[in-house]
């Protein structure tokens, strides 16, 4: 496209401009080639080899890694655990975020409130994980002390099989719900005021109006936000690594953690690569299915 418009120009001027462009692009494109493009190609390639950490040579093994993956119970467990995490995390987070977006909308986007709900998201996963490691501590944590005062049984939140994943999921709901709400709020701003007010004249209550009129109009934004948050949610690592390290046994061994274990603790780089290819494909499928299901490209306003 650019080439045709340049056809009428004198060639040496074009070449000079290309050289200028190359100079502008060079640093960033070197970074792209070395740290994005090369490892992507190599990641696929390694998944067909018996590559090991600390061993320079490797052999082509075809689909061996993929065969091993299909019969690996820990891999399927990791997928299951990750899926469970995503379900709890995204389910609760989306509902909370919609509620917060409504609050922000009613406050006409008060800057103080927007900054406040964004704050947890700006804290590192490690800091957030440590805050909740303390709050959820079995013996000394304030959560169990609180449950005790209202007459409920204390739970070993992060050290029990049943609660490990829901606890981690809710920790990350705390970190991400405000941020997700801000994304939704940005979408709310694009809905014309007269559409909302038309519903008011029709006699809807305020909450009803939000659920029946505003939310359906928000669907395209919601679809995009869901795709972003679900993809992020699948890649849970930091919080698990800091709080449970995958335990008890494999109860919270999410897929990222298992890939990491295989690559660095057991040095099976080829096998770890095959699993990251699988994760990549899963995320691609999730994205496509979701965009289809939520018909993201159609807006009811159009």
């Amino acid at each position: 496209m650019a080439a045709t418009s340049m056809g009428t120009r004198r060639p040496h001027r074009d070449v000079r401009q290309w050289l200028t462009a190359a100079a502008f692009l060079a640093p960033a494109m070197i970074g792209f080639a070395v740290f994005y493009f090369r490892p992507t190609v190599l990641g696929f390639y390694n998944s067909f080899t018996d590559k090991e950490l600390l061993r320079p040579e490797s052999d082509w093994v075809g689909l061996e890694n993929y065969r091993e993956m299909i019969s690996d119970d820990v891999f399927w467990n990791a997928l299951w655990v990750t899926g469970y995490y995503v379900l709890v995390n995204i389910g609760v987070q989306t509902i909370c975020a919609i509620g917060i977006a409504w609050v922000l909308d009613r406050l006409s986007g008060s800057r103080v409130m927007r900054t406040l709900v964004m704050t947890p998201y700006l804290m590192s996963n490690v800091v957030v994980a440590l805050l909740f490691l303390w709050i959820l501590d079995f013996r000394l944590g304030v959560m169990n002390a609180f449950l005790d005062t209202i007459g409920l049984n204390p739970q070993p939140w992060l050290s029990s099989k049943e609660w490990a994943i829901p606890s981690i999921a809710l920790i990350n709901v705390w970190r991400h719900m405000g941020y997700t709400a801000l994304l939704l709020f940005a979408g709310l701003q694009t809905i014309p005021k007269d559409v909302k007010e038309a519903a008011l004249i029709d006699g809807c209550g305020e909450i009803q109006r939000f659920i029946r009129v505003t939310l359906p109009l928000l669907r395209p934004v919601l679809a995009v936000v869901l795709v972003i948050t679900i993809i992020g949610s699948f890649q849970i690592f930091d919080t698990v690594d800091v709080t449970t390290e995958g335990g008890p046994v494999n109860a919270s061994r999410v897929i990222y953690l298992y890939i990491f274990d295989q690559a660095f603790a057991r040095r099976n780089f080829g096998y770890a690569s095959a699993m990251s290819v699988a994760l990549f494909l899963i995320l691609a499928v999730v994205t496509i299915v979701q965009m289809r299901l939520l018909r993201a490209n159609e807006s009811d306003l159009a």
């Binding site: 490892p39 190599l42 990641g43 390694n46 993809i231 990491f260 990251s276 994760l279 995320l283």
Partner: peptide, 8 residues
């Protein structure tokens, strides 16, 4: 996904 490029 970042882990994909992280290994190589």
């Amino acid at each position: 996904p970042p882990i994909f490029t992280l290994l190589p």
